[in-house]
Simulated assay, not measured.
Amino acid sequence: MKLPHIRRHLVELVPTARAQRWDHAELVRVLLAEEAAGRDATNLRTRRQRAGFPAGKTLHDWDAGASCIPRPTQDALTSLEWVSRRENLCVCGPSGTGKSHFCEALGQAAVETGMTVAWFTIEDLGALVRRHRADDSITRALARLIRTDLIIVDDIGLLPVSPDAAEGFYRLVDAAYERRSLAISSNLHPSGFDEIMPKTLATATVDRLLHHAHIVVTDGDSYRLAQATGVSDLRCNWSVAPGVSRGKDHQ
């Protein structure tokens, strides 16, 4: 046992223990507590680095009061119970309405509770397919990936999806189906994915994705545009799938 955190705190704690006349058991208890806290902090940093979050946005940065998402819906999603139940989340709507921020904040919250998270764009999935096509190891790569508790795929629908990305997205959804939770942000409702990927593949992907899924549909002005133009009064309407507000599956 290397006990790096005990070694780091030993020099300062031993004089304190002597001055305050701690017994040996108390000193050992404090040292072990420091070791446990240090390991927890190290594990948190490691999980956060491996997740690959793009911007470091958390729920602390998320203004729940200013958001157009109904507060009961936010509470239901930030509880992360849907991740424990291996359900999916689809947040779809125009650019700038908080989709990516909310998904990343949920991912950060999951990491803080001890879960593992992986962040991708849909083209990252295409790169994954190309990287493993040469030796036909994509199945093994996906098997490793779905050991992750929550997988987030961001910004679907901004651009046409390449054939490799469409294949990677389908393979991921299929591999994770009823095994792990997926969260996606998209400019398109999933029912419109056949506009950006082959219809047959889109149908198979959406069928698996939306089974046991919560859907939040956003509509309104861009937060980024409002900040750039100094507009403080945003119009934004959120429609929420019944599964979120009632805590049940949306099929």
Rank of each mutant, 00 (worst) to 15 (best):
L89C: 03
A134W: 13
T58Q: 03
R235Y: 08
A105S: 09
S162D: 13
Y223F: 15
I184G: 01
P163S: 06
F53I: 11
S137P: 07
D61R: 02
A241T: 09
G230H: 01
C236E: 05
H212E: 10
L210P: 01
A202F: 06
R133A: 13
D135T: 06
D40V: 06
S181R: 05
G247K: 03
W238P: 09
S245P: 04
G126A: 00
H214G: 02
S162N: 14
C103E: 01
V173K: 00
W22S: 00
A25V: 07
A33N: 07
R179I: 12
D249M: 11
R147D: 15
G157P: 04
W238Q: 05
A33C: 06
N43R: 14
P198E: 13
T16S: 12
N187I: 04
T16D: 14
M115L: 15
V240K: 01
V153D: 02
A202Q: 00
S137L: 10
H60S: 14
D136N: 15
D149M: 02
H24L: 11
L159T: 13
L89F: 04
D164E: 15
T73M: 10
F120R: 01
L225C: 03
T78D: 11
K248F: 12
L27W: 05
G192C: 14
A25C: 08
L159P: 05
D40L: 07
I196Q: 02
D154W: 06
R85S: 07
P190H: 03
G114S: 06
L59G: 03
K99N: 02
S162C: 10
V217M: 08
A226R: 05
D233V: 13
K2W: 11
A166C: 12
R47G: 02
V217E: 03
R235H: 12
E178I: 12
A51D: 01
A17N: 01
P70L: 00
A25I: 05
E195K: 14
E178T: 08
S186F: 10
T121D: 12
I138L: 15
L158C: 08
F169K: 00
P15A: 04
D249S: 15
A110W: 00
L182P: 02
V231P: 06
L77A: 05
D61G: 08
P4A: 13
G93K: 07
I146E: 05
R48Y: 12
A41T: 09
H5W: 14
H5R: 08
D219Y: 06
T16Q: 14
V30K: 02
R171C: 09
R47W: 09
L106M: 14
P70Y: 08
R29N: 09
L32C: 10
E123K: 07
Q108C: 12
R180V: 05
G230C: 03
R29L: 13
I146C: 11
T16F: 13
G220H: 04
G98V: 04
P4F: 15
E167Q: 15
H214A: 05
A143W: 10
L89E: 03
R50C: 04
T42V: 10
R21H: 14
L201S: 01
V240C: 01
R180D: 04
L182R: 02
P15T: 06
E178N: 01
H9L: 14
L125G: 03
P72G: 10
